[in-house]
Nucleic acid binder design. Structure first.
Length: 546
RNA sequence: GCGGGUGUAGCUUAGUGGUAAAGCAAUGGCCUUCCAAGCCAUCCAUGAGGGUUCGAUUCCCUUCACCCGCUCCA
């Protein structure tokens, strides 16, 4: 499937528009049109229903280690700045980057290391991005090449310093960049603010700087105690939240896949440390199945466990649910959702202060004076088991999904060009969105076959009745075939048509979008039939010829 | 952020230093008894800003957006 066709359809039919399009657009921001907003809302509603309000906390769900509770939360986008300092985002999202004018590469300032060397009366700083084990050999190789020396003359190189990070350098004039063969090609370090900054208060100054949240999760951690104290939840339980997050992406690209403003659907699931591994596996598999149940094909969906070297020290497991988006090279997948075992890192960071994620066991990150780099709240965020009277800091499993990425994946999966007969029975190509009925923006369209003999009045009667429970659409213009095709293109799963036979026996036809099959049902049964078909329809996207 | 490419109607394309053309779509009619039919009518465009010029959609500059490749992806 070509991405341009889907992008074009999204615009033409009102799923997605570029933000501020009349002013030329804004890179990394997208608006949802009348149909897109319904699709995205259906995705969020399905998630909320399946994870939170519809959750059966009295039964042990298939694959789950035990019964558990689920509650929701809706936190503010702007939070106390200390939240982001303790969460690690403040440090992590303020990278200093240097660019190389020669190699055109960009490096994280603190990840480039090197040492001073002198030869032939000239002193230079040789830098590299190589691993610590190889940096000595790598800098020697580079120095030899720069001074045009043979390996056997390596003793002519006089190393005058230990390895230091580029961040310790004040001037790059004598620096040989990691991929450069001349000096002074590195630009001064520039700050990349990946969090959106704003000022709180009408007269606020830089001291009143605050940030738009780069994830919804921290609001849940910050409210952990409030939820425990107010809602009678007992561990194990989860807190879910759906909402906007903001990241100043360096390169937004691939339609809505990497946007600067996006919506997340996150659960923070709190459990006993010794049971956390089982819960991690449960959530990983449960979330994967959710996408399958809503129609993503398993050959385009994968559950990828992170390798141990990708994991944070405090995490005993992280998996990504990934989808083979059509804009990616063949064989590559893009992340829809990450399920991370986060240990007690977050709750402890908000208690004690920012922890150093590279320590094991976790230690407080300190500044040059030995003081905490970012002070925590000092509040006790531990949990007391009312039965055993045991107090502990829960471990956290975090399934974190992107609503916009899910919407994009469902659209990509649903887009389909197949054939349908025209009025002469000849096969014509048709564009159809084979969206799961739960996700389809419009559940059913109601047509009078012709605009006379009282058929419109009957159709409108059905329309009004269905409207009470579903988002339905009424259309009486043009040939009925054209109306069917219009609905196919926006993914409407069912079309109900009133014809002359309705006048005699009160039956109407209901047409299935995917099979094109029509069956006659009593016009008074339309609402129940549509509800039955939406609920009963399993996987509808089993075939995707593109 | 770098390099290359592209911007004409909702979409697909045409064209020109001097009135911007068509098909499809949309809208309103007529006609139509089940899968994009037909007829009539209507609506809509040179991404933005500046320069050269009597005159710029066309030439030049800047900018914005999109696509491809690098980079980045917390």
């Amino acid at each position: 499937m070509e991405m341009e066709k889907l992008v074009s359809l999204c615009k033409r039919r009102g799923f997605l528009f570029q933000s501020s399009e009349i002013y030329g657009g804004l890179n990394g921001f997208w608006d949802y049109g009348p149909l897109g907003v319904e699709l995205k809302r259906n995705i969020k509603d399905a998630w909320w229903r399946d994870m939170i309000t519809g959750h059966d906390d009295l039964s042990v769900l298939t694959g789950a280690p035990a019964k558990y509770q689920m509650v929701g939360l809706d936190c503010t986008i702007i939070m106390h700045p200390q939240v982001w300092k303790c969460s690690g985002h403040y440090d992590l999202f303020h990278d200093f980057m240097v660019d190389c004018r020669q190699s055109k590469k960009r490096y994280r300032h603190d990840q480039v290391r090197g040492r001073w060397v002198e030869a032939k009366g000239k002193k230079i700083f040789v830098s590299t991005t190589a691993e610590a084990a190889e940096e000595e050999a790598e800098t020697e190789r580079k120095a030899l090449k720069f001074f045009k020396l043979r390996s056997k003359n390596a003793d002519e190189l006089s190393w005058t310093s230990d390895f230091v990070s580029l961040s310790a350098m004040s001037d790059f004039a004598e620096v040989l960049g990691p991929d450069a063969n001349e000096l002074g090609t590195l630009t001064p370090p520039r700050e990349f603010n990946l969090m959106f900054k704003t000022i709180v208060g009408a007269l606020g100054s830089e001291d009143d700087a605050a940030f738009l949240r780069p994830e919804t999760a921290q609001g849940i951690f910050a409210n952990f105690k409030n939820v425990v104290d107010s809602s009678r939840v007992k561990i194990p339980f989860g807190i879910g939240q759906v909402g906007k997050s903001f990241r100043n992406e360096i390169t937004p690209r691939n339609f809505t896949f990497r946007s600067r403003e996006f919506e997340q659907m996150e659960v923070e699931f709190f459990c006993r440390p010794e049971e956390s591994q089982e819960w991690y596996k449960y959530w990983r598999d449960r979330r994967y199945q959710w996408y399958l149940d809503l129609g993503l094909a398993d050959e385009r969906l994968q559950l990828r466990d992170h390798d141990s070297d990708e994991l944070s020290h405090y995490s005993t497991g992280t998996a990504d649910i990934e989808y083979a988006f059509p804009f990616l090279p063949s064989g590559e997948f893009g992340e829809l959702e990450g399920i991370a075992h986060r240990g007690n890192f977050d709750l402890r960071s908000h208690m004690e202060g920012k922890l150093n994620p590279n320590t094991n066991p976790l230690e407080l990150e300190t500044n040059e004076h030995g003081q905490p780099k970012h002070r925590g709240s000092g509040k006790d965020l531990s949990y007391r088991d009312k039965e055993t009277n045991e107090r502990f800091i829960p471990h956290v499993i975090e399934p974190s999904a992107g609503a916009d990425r899910a919407a994009l994946a469902f659209l990509c999966e649903a887009y389909c060009e197949d054939e349908a007969p025209d009025e002469k029975g000849k096969m014509q190509s048709r564009t159809v969105l084979k969206l799961h009925p739960r996700l389809a923006p419009i559940k059913a369209a109601i047509f009078p076959l012709v605009k006379k003999d009282g058929l419109p009045e009957l159709a409108q009667q059905i329309y009004r009745e269905l409207k009470q429970d579903h988002n339905v659409f009424y259309d009486e213009t043009g040939a009925v075939g054209r109306r069917y095709r219009r609905q196919d293109e926006i993914g409407t799963p069912f079309c109900i048509t009133v014809d002359s036979q309705t006048l005699q026996d009160k039956t109407v036809t209901i047409r299935d979008r995917d099979s094109l099959e029509q069956s006659r049902i009593n016009m008074n049964d339309c609402a129940t039939e549509v509800a039955r078909r939406i609920a009963g329809k399993g996987k509808v996207c089993s075939e995707n010829p593109s």
